[in-house]
Design a binder for these strands. Structure first.
Length: 245
DNA sequence: CCCTGATTCGC
DNA sequence: GCGAATCAGG
C-alpha cells in the first residue's frame, strides 16, 4: 500500500536543468532547495547538495565552498552515525560541545523523506497513501496536504451526533474534540462488519482513515454484497471522491 | 541561534 | 542513485 508515491524527489530532465541554472546563478543550496520546492515538489537542501555532487563528474557546476580558516575535517568523521555510546567525554569544542555530546549518545533512527522538508507527521503517511496522485510526479508531501484538507472538510460536514443519538449502523468516528462540549460522532453509514446489526464501527471514509485503505473498503463492499446486504452507501462524499478530491 | 557546504552509508 | 544524519565551520 505504499510505493504509490515517490518518496524521493523526481529528478526529471527539467528539474535537473533548473538545478544547473540555479547553481550557475550562485544561489546557496538552501535557496535552490526552496526554489525547486516551489517550482516542482518539496525537496531538502541535502538532496540538492547530494545531486550537485553526484553530477560533478558530468561537468555539472558546483557550489562554491564557503571560506574556511580552520582545518578540513578528516575523512570518515562525518555522516557516520555514532555507534559507540560515550556518555561523557570532557568538553572539546566550546562552540559545538552540547551538540557533539548529544549525538554521541543517541543514534537517532534514520527517517525517510516523508518527514522532510520540515514537519510532515509520519502518521499522516498512511493517510496520504489513500489519496491517488493527480500527477505521477506528485509528492507524498502534497498528497498529505490534500488528504488532510479533505479529511477536515468531511468531518465538518458530518452529522455530528451525540452518543445517545447514535444508532445501529452509524459511523462512530469522533468528529469533534472541543473542550467542555459534548462528544460528537460522524453518524455516516457504517460499513458491514462484525458489530451489532452486522455493521462495523466506521463509514467508508473513516474506515479508510483508520488504516483500512481502498482495498479494505472494497473488501467490505464485497462481503456486504455476499451477505445479501446492500453495498455500503458511500457516505456523503464517496470514498473515491474523498480520496481523489 | 542563524547559516554554509561536505561526507558517509542505509536504503 | 538518493538523501538524512551528521559533520566542521562562519
Amino acid at each position: 500500500m505504499s510505493g504509490a508515491y515517490p518518496v524521493t524527489f523526481a529528478w526529471t530532465d527539467e528539474a535537473i536543468a533548473r538545478l544547473k541554472k540555479l547553481v550557475e546563478e550562485k544561489l546557496s543550496a538552501s535557496d535552490i532547495a526552496a526554489r525547486l520546492s516551489k517550482e516542482f515538489a518539496p525537496i531538502s537542501r541535502n538532496a540538492v547538495i547530494g545531486m550537485i555532487r553526484r553530477k560533478a563528474k558530468a561537468g555539472f557546476p558546483q557550489l562554491k565552498a564557503p571560506a574556511r580558516t580552520g582545518a578540513i575535517r578528516a575523512p570518515g568523521a562525518a555522516g557516520k552515525p555514532a555507534k559507540v555510546v560515550r556518555p561523557s567525554t570532557k568538553a572539546q569544542d566550546a562552540h559545538h560541545e552540547g551538540r557533539s555530546a548529544r549525538y554521541a549518545i543517541k543514534a537517532p533512527p534514520r527517517l525517510t523523506s516523508a518527514n522532510d522538508p520540515k514537519g510532515f507527521d509520519p502518521d499522516l503517511k498512511a493517510l496520504a497513501d489513500l489519496a491517488p496522485a493527480k500527477k505521477p510526479v506528485e509528492t507524498l508531501a502534497l498528497a498529505v496536504q490534500r488528504a488532510v484538507t479533505n479529511a477536515k472538510a468531511y468531518d465538518a460536514a458530518s452529522r455530528h451526533l451525540t452518543l445517545t443519538e447514535l444508532q445501529t449502523g452509524d459511523c462512530k468516528f469522533p468528529v469533534t474534540d472541543d473542550a467542555g462540549g459534548a462528544h460528537r460522532f460522524c453518524g455516516g453509514q457504517a460499513l458491514p462488519g462484525k458489530g451489532p446489526g452486522g455493521f462495523g464501527s466506521y463509514c467508508a471514509h473513516h474506515q479508510a482513515r483508520c488504516g483500512g485503505g481502498p482495498s479494505t473498503f472494497r473488501q467490505a463492499q464485497d462481503s456486504g454484497r455476499a451477505a445479501g446486504k446492500p453495498a455500503p452507501r458511500a457516505t456523503a462524499r464517496s470514498f473515491g471522491e474523498w480520496a481523489a478530491a
